[in-house]
Design a protein around this nucleic acid. Structure first.
Lengths: 347, 347
DNA sequence: CTGAAAGCGCTAACAG
DNA sequence: CTGTTAGCGCTTTCAG
C-alpha cells in the first residue's frame, strides 16, 4: 500500500483523461444540458477512474451566486435536537453546493444584533429551528435584508414563508388511534405549553380521533401541562386521582410521559398492565426509562435536510417573481412502539 | 434600512482603505511578522470600518497546505454527544483556518472501507470520537495513509497518539469525595461496562478516595453493570437488598443512576432523604428525572474544540521531526450538584 | 454542442 | 518591511 496521489485529481485531470476540454468536463459533472452523450459518458468514466471529487472551495469561489447559508441556533435548543439538525444539514449542504456555517445567537440578544451577526456572515439564507422561527421580529428583519429564511417546525406558518415540519395533528391522531385500537376508551391527555401551537395541534388530533370513534370527550380527562417533567407530575396526579381514572394517558411529550410513569409507580400501578402511557418526540429519555415509551418520532434530521434543499432550490434561480417552487414541506413522522402500552386491564 | 453593500468587502477593499498593498493587508490580517506597527494599525481599522470578513473558500483554495479535516462518527454515538462534538468543532475550525467535513461511517463497515472513504475526502486529519478511537485497526490504517488522528476520550492512549480527554479517575474521586464530605461512609458503586476503560478508571477514583479517607473497601458494595438502564436496575436491587444497605450510590453513568432511583422509589425510599444517588456524564436524562441527578459533566464541546486546535497546530508546520507540540490535552470536568444527594439520614 | 479566456479572493513565492 | 507576480480549482462569460 504505497502513497499514491499526493495531490487529489483536479477537473483538469478529468478533462485530459476524458479527452475533452475542462469546460465540457465541468458541464458534464454538473449535469448541465448542452453536452453530448458521448462526452458525458467519457467524463463520467474519467471521474470514476481517477476518483475525482470536486473541490468545494474552488466551486464556492468561482460561483458568482452567494451560496453560503447558516444554521442559526439559540442556546435553548437541546443538543440532541441540534445534533440531529446539524447532521442532516451537514450531509445535504455539499449535495446542493451550499456552504453551511453554524451560528449561535447570544443568550439575551436583541433581534437586531442577531440579524447583524448573520448579515456579517454573508449568508444568503438561514435555517431557523424553534423557537427562533417563531420570533416574528427576527424573521421580518431577516427578510428585510433579503436573507432567505426556512423555518423548522414553526408554530405559525405564514403563507409566504419557507418551512419544513411534520403534521402534529395527524401524528397525535395516529397515536390516539393506536390506543383506541388497543381497546382503550378512557384516555387521559396531558397538554403541552399552551404558548406552543404544536401543543394545540396535538390536542386537536387527539380530540378528532376520539370523535371519529364515537368516544365522548370528557373535559376532566384533559390536564394542563407545559412540557416540563414537573408539570407532568401534577397532571398525572390529577388524572390518576379521578374517581374513574383513565386506562391510558397520552402525554404531549416524553418528559411528561416519564413523569406520568413515575406517578403511576408511586400509586402502585403497573405500566403498562394497569395503565398505558405514551409520549411524543422520541427523545433519548424515551428509551432510557422503564418501561420504554411508545412515542412519536419526528424526522428531525430529514427536516434540516429538506430545509437545505429548499434553500438550494430558491438560491439557484434568482427570479423572484415566479417562485413556483413549493415552499412548504411536510414530513412523515413515525409511531415508535415500545413497552409502555398494552390492552386495557379487564374489570 | 436600505440594502447596503451588495457584495461583501474583499481584502482589496481593505488594502485600498488602509492605503497599503493587498499583501501587506493579508499579512497584517493573519498576524504574521514583518509588518510595521503603522500598517498593522491601519489595516485593523480598515477591517473594522468595512466589516471585512475573510473568505474561507478563497483561503482554502490559495493555501497550499491541506487544511481539510474530518469528524468521523459511527451511528453508535448518541446524537446529543455528537451534537456537542459538532458544535465545538464547527466553532473552532474557522478560527484555525481548517475546513471541517463530517463523515458518518456505515454500520457494519470494515476498517478498510472507512479509511478509503476518508482518504477520498482528501482530509489531512480526522477526529475520532469513541468508540472509533479505540478501534486500533482503524487508527493504524489511517496513520499509514499519513492522516493525522486525534482521539476523543480514548480508552487506551498510546504515547504517540494525539488525544483529548478528561481525567475520569480524578472526576470519580471528586464525586466520591463530595459524598464523603456529606457524611456518607457506606457508599455503593455501580460499575460500567468492563470493556470500557473509563469504567475501570472511575472505579479506581472511587476506591482511591475511600482509601484516602480511611474508609474500608467493602466488595459487597460494588455491583456490576454495563452502562445500561437495565443493568442499573439489577445492580441497585443488589445494593439496596443488602442487610446494611449503603446510604449513597455512585452509578458509573446517568442511565444507571436513574435506574437506581427507580428501584429506590419502588422500595419506598426517599431520594435523597433516605439514600443519595449520583450519576456521571450529565446527559439530558440527568435533569429530566426527579430528583434531578448530581453528576459529573464532561466538557464535550471543548474536547472537539481542542481536537481541532491540535490538528491546526500539527498541520501548520510540516516538520515531522521535531513535533514538540503537546499531543495530549486533559480537560476539566465539572461536578454538577442537583437534588439527588444529601447528608445521610440519622439512625 | 464545445472551447478559450478571464477571473472569484486569497496567499506562497519571490523580488525590491 | 513591502510590493509584484503567479497561481489554487472551478465556473462564468463569450466566441466559435
Amino acid at each position: 500500500m504505497q502513497k499514491q496521489d499526493r495531490k487529489p485529481p483536479t477537473i483538469k485531470d478529468v478533462a485530459a483523461h476524458a479527452g475533452v476540454s475542462v469546460m465540457t468536463a465541468s458541464r458534464a459533472i454538473n449535469g448541465k444540458a448542452l453536452v453530448s452523450a458521448g462526452a458525458r459518458e467519457a467524463v463520467a468514466q474519467a471521474v470514476k477512474a481517477l476518483g475525482y471529487v470536486p473541490n468545494a472551495s474552488a466551486r464556492a469561489l468561482a460561483g458568482s451566486a452567494d451560496r453560503r447559508v447558516a444554521l442559526l441556533h439559540s442556546n435553548s435548543t437541546t443538543s440532541a435536537y441540534l445534533g440531529e439538525l446539524l447532521l442532516g444539514a451537514l450531509a445535504e449542504a455539499p449535495q446542493r453546493h451550499l456552504h453551511l456555517v453554524v451560528e449561535q445567537c447570544a443568550p439575551g440578544a436583541f433581534a437586531q444584533e442577531i440579524v447583524d451577526q448573520v448579515a456579517q456572515a454573508h449568508v444568503a439564507g438561514v435555517i431557523l429551528p424553534p423557537p427562533l422561527c417563531d420570533w416574528s421580529e427576527l424573521v421580518e428583519q431577516l427578510a428585510q435584508r433579503d436573507i432567505l429564511v426556512v423555518a423548522i417546525a414553526p408554530d405559525r406558518d405564514g403563507p409566504d414563508m419557507l418551512s419544513v415540519g411534520t403534521d402534529d395533528r395527524h401524528a397525535a391522531y395516529d397515536l390516539t388511534r393506536h390506543l383506541v385500537d388497543l381497546g382503550h376508551r378512557r384516555i387521559g391527555f396531558i397538554e403541552g405549553n399552551p404558548r406552543h401551537r404544536a401543543s394545540a395541534r396535538r390536542l386537536q388530533g387527539f380530540r378528532d380521533c376520539l370523535a371519529d370513534h364515537g368516544i365522548a370527550a370528557d373535559a376532566a380527562l384533559v390536564a394542563p401541562g407545559d412540557f416540563s417533567f414537573r408539570s407532568g407530575l401534577d397532571a398525572a396526579e390529577q388524572l390518576l386521582g379521578l374517581d374513574t381514572p383513565p386506562t391510558a394517558i397520552f402525554a404531549c411529550n416524553d418528559d411528561m410521559a416519564a413523569a406520568a410513569i413515575t406517578v403511576a409507580h408511586q400509586r402502585k400501578l403497573n405500566v403498562p398492565g394497569d395503565i398505558s402511557i405514551c409520549g411524543f418526540d422520541d427523545t433519548p429519555l424515551a428509551s432510557a426509562i422503564w418501561p420504554a415509551l411508545t412515542t412519536i418520532r419526528q424526522p428531525i434530521r430529514d427536516m434540516s435536510r429538506e430545509a437545505i434543499g429548499l434553500l438550494g432550490m430558491r438560491l439557484r434561480s434568482p427570479d423572484d417573481g415566479a417562485h413556483g417552487v413549493i415552499g412548504k414541506v411536510k414530513l412523515d413522522y413515525q409511531l415508535i412502539r415500545r413497552q409502555s402500552d398494552a390492552v386495557p386491564a379487564r374489570h
